[in-house]
Design a protein around this nucleic acid. Sequence first.
DNA 1: TTGAAAGCGCTAACAA
DNA 2: TTGTTAGCGCTTTCAA
Lengths: 340, 340
Amino acid sequence: MPTIDDVARAAGVSASTVSYVLSGKRSISGPTRERVKRAIAQLGYRPHAGARALASSRTNVIALMAPLRVGVDVNVIMQFVTGVVTRAREFEHDVLLLTQDDVVGIERVSNGSMVDAVIVMDVEAQDARIPTLVGLRQPAVLIGLPGHTQPLSCVDLDFEEVGRLALSHLTALGHRRIALIGPPPSVLDRHTSYADRMLRGYRAQALVDDVEVLVEPCESTSAGARRAVAAVLEHMPDVTAVVVHNESALPTVVSALRTAGRRIPDDVSLLAVCPADVALSQSVALTSIDIPAQQIGAAAVDMVMERLAGSGAVQTRLFAPQVTDRDSTAPRDSTALPRT
Amino acid sequence: MPTIDDVARAAGVSASTVSYVLSGKRSISGPTRERVKRAIAQLGYRPHAGARALASSRTNVIALMAPLRVGVDVNVIMQFVTGVVTRAREFEHDVLLLTQDDVVGIERVSNGSMVDAVIVMDVEAQDARIPTLVGLRQPAVLIGLPGHTQPLSCVDLDFEEVGRLALSHLTALGHRRIALIGPPPSVLDRHTSYADRMLRGYRAQALVDDVEVLVEPCESTSAGARRAVAAVLEHMPDVTAVVVHNESALPTVVSALRTAGRRIPDDVSLLAVCPADVALSQSVALTSIDIPAQQIGAAAVDMVMERLAGSGAVQTRLFAPQVTDRDSTAPRDSTALPRT
DNA sequence: TTGAAAGCGCTAACAA
DNA sequence: TTGTTAGCGCTTTCAA
């Protein structure tokens, strides 16, 4: 591999000039720049990342800690990751992948100066990683909100508002008995940020709208979904609307409701909280609140970059949820009246 | 951050001694080692990754190029990634995540000496990345097989054998009219390695066993799955067995068959090609051929490490598939009388 | 068993 | 506008 000195020699300039051509940190005359660029292209020169990191204390790599366990809304995770990687590349950064369980990994890559920043997914209310993150030399961004405010940047969909919105959308349609088929018990037990907040908003809105609600956790399997539907129908036989916040359960919830003789949306309205493409790939186009995972991932990178540029302060950024009406919701009395 | 010199000073030794304690590349007296280790712990010392890479030309990072597009058997991808990351950590390596579309990314991280090796997923028969990979200074391992033998290490499930095995398992149960609900058309069109090979084996075995088969590509949506089932029932009304090689279609295929009045396994046997946990989370425990994605990912890392240690030659490693009998397959005449 | 010292390839302050 | 030079923090050869 050619080094910066090889390039400098080929272009008849000094190494620092090559460096400055590459970084743009000082002005270079047109002809010089041209010669240097030609030499770089000719030799196929690539700066050595380690040397660069050593000299500049910048690695152009950010760490992303993602929950690689299977079963938990794998699509959403993929979209977060895609958003992060794609946006990072736009800033000439690469992404180092850390897994959830590798908590010491944060310190390893941070203290070992392998990365410029850390993005953490799947945050829990009392997240064990937070003390570590707070002590880091590099900026950290959470996707999700910890239970208590921390000196850390956070970004997420406003899940509390998701809960309120889901419920109020259905009550506005006249529904008074509404069930939530939620995330798996394990997610709830861990007080995963998004699940907790969604539930809080949902329950709060139930009080406001004075409607009866039911919350049924749901394993991310077909059997789990069927069990959840059965439980809902048993405990709330006259349910007329269901909110589903569990991507993998979605197809089975839909078919289980039908099997139980509940037409969608004639007998039961269904509102899903999931990425838009998931809502659209079900057997009915589902009315849904989109989880803009890719955008959130991209926003996390933006916040990282602002912090690295020195222009960004610690902040929390919440995306406002929106209901997209599709074919799975209807007014409560839609069957009582003739339909078109 | 403390440097190696700080540690050396604290321990009353030279920097090289600290380095050797860390690498184990020469013998150190017990007391010295102890003092050094204590100093390291006390100072919370971490070697600077860039400096290390510069001096040793080893980064302890491997690049993983993963297909981050959604929809294509996301669970399988996650399991590959998990396998790679987990095993890499066992070898003290981290994983840099590259996306499929970022083809120049390979050259960037390779020539920029950011990584020690490259693992590439989702290989196609004529894969555009192969020439690049062949020219790399670092070892490359493919998960999947290219169409023509290349001077590259490969590892995968033996999908050709999967096709043969799936079919012969069903013919052995007496089935003579068998349909395959396969991957999405886009995957087939790209001649994705695993899909091509599975089909080849399946068709070859159909000739051997002299049975009638049908191949129906299938979009990874509920609607797509329903369409595929309808097409199968239309073109092969007396079908008695179905192979499904499309993870996301699985739940809907199962329910669509039932809706069409075909009981599983009484009227139609169903054999799935998917990770074991996916087969188990359907509404019937499906007879399946497991895709041991995590193991394959781990094996890819093993091959990388052997190559890096100098002990590994270029080789292709194929995992032998196995059928696990569960509740979705039965002899053809289990309920009906023997047919001609 | 240990130390001294020469790089590894780059950046950026200082000089011109 | 460009060049010179002193590190960045580590590994590893050579010497003792």
